Simulated assay, not measured.
Amino acid sequence: MFDMFFPDEYVASTYVIPFEELYEKGYRGVLFDIDNTLVPHGAPADERAKKLFARLKEIGFSCCLISNNQEPRVKMFNEEIQVPYIYNAHKPSTKNYRKAMELMGTDEKNSLFVGDQLFTDVFGAKRAGMHNILVKPMHPKEEIQIVLKRYLERIVLHFYKKKQNKPTLK
């Protein structure tokens, strides 16, 4: 019932994702949400985010930021990162996931998405046919509409975790 919202992977943080392994598996593009995925809500790019993007570029990844925020927020974060970005993306609409892949010169088979929300980030990436990685939100401070969605996310994650622990039939 909730499968359409289940992430392909669920990890504690963007900063523990083994990007080198993903590159070896053939991924070439990474789309990122910003708030609570890379930095706390509203924060500029910190040293950890700057190092991550330098590392990704060194590995050979193309990157793109895709955010439902307005341009001033996304542009401010990107000042130190310098990757293509899409603001006011209307996630989970697939239009801007596809536009991001076009900007990176990748497609749904060799791109992946990293974000912290099930109903926008993961659902949109799944609908676009992309591998997706859900990360735990970095900071509890969030806008009220996101706080409300987090209650529903807990229900979906309960069933996701339950499914993950199910023994497989052989």
Rank of each mutant, 00 (worst) to 15 (best):
V156D: 03
K75C: 06
K136A: 13
M76N: 14
L56W: 07
F2H: 09
F61I: 03
I34F: 04
P167K: 11
Y151G: 04
E9T: 04
Q70W: 04
E9F: 03
Y27E: 03
Y87N: 12
L118M: 14
I66C: 03
P92M: 04
R55Y: 10
Y27T: 01
Q145C: 04
E143C: 02
L31F: 06
D107Y: 01
I66W: 06
K162Y: 11
F119M: 15
A43S: 15
T168P: 00
K91G: 02
G42E: 10
A49K: 10
Y10S: 09
T120R: 01
R127E: 12
E108F: 13
P44M: 11
D33V: 03
E24Q: 14
C64H: 02
D3M: 03
T106V: 07
Y15W: 10
Q70S: 10
A45I: 14
K170A: 06
K51I: 07
Y27H: 05
E102A: 15
D121M: 12
K50I: 15
I86V: 15
D116I: 01
E79M: 12
E153Q: 05
H41V: 12
R48Q: 15
K162W: 11
G129F: 06
G60P: 04
F159I: 07
N88C: 07
S111A: 14
F123M: 09
N69Y: 10
Q145V: 12
N132W: 04
N36F: 10
V156N: 01
E47W: 08
S93K: 15
L103R: 06
R55E: 11
P84A: 11
M138V: 05
E21V: 06
I146K: 09
T168W: 00
I86M: 05
Y160S: 07
R55W: 02
E108R: 14
Y23Q: 05
L152H: 00
L103D: 03
K91E: 01
G26Y: 10
E71Y: 13
I17C: 07
E21G: 13
K50P: 00
F113M: 12
I59S: 05
P92D: 05
K161W: 00
F119Q: 04
S62P: 00
G26L: 09
Y97H: 14
P84V: 04
F32L: 07
E142P: 00
A43E: 15
Y87S: 15
K75Q: 12
A128N: 02
K163R: 15
H131R: 12
T120P: 01
E20D: 15
Q117R: 09
L118H: 13
N110W: 09
R28M: 03
L148R: 13
C63R: 01
E20Q: 14
E79H: 13
N88R: 11
V11S: 01
V39Q: 03
K170Y: 06
E108S: 14
E143W: 07
K99G: 00
V114G: 00
M1I: 10
Y10R: 08
N78S: 09
T94R: 08
A54V: 13
P84W: 05
N36R: 11
K95H: 12
A100K: 06
F77K: 08
V122Q: 05
I86P: 06
Q82T: 06
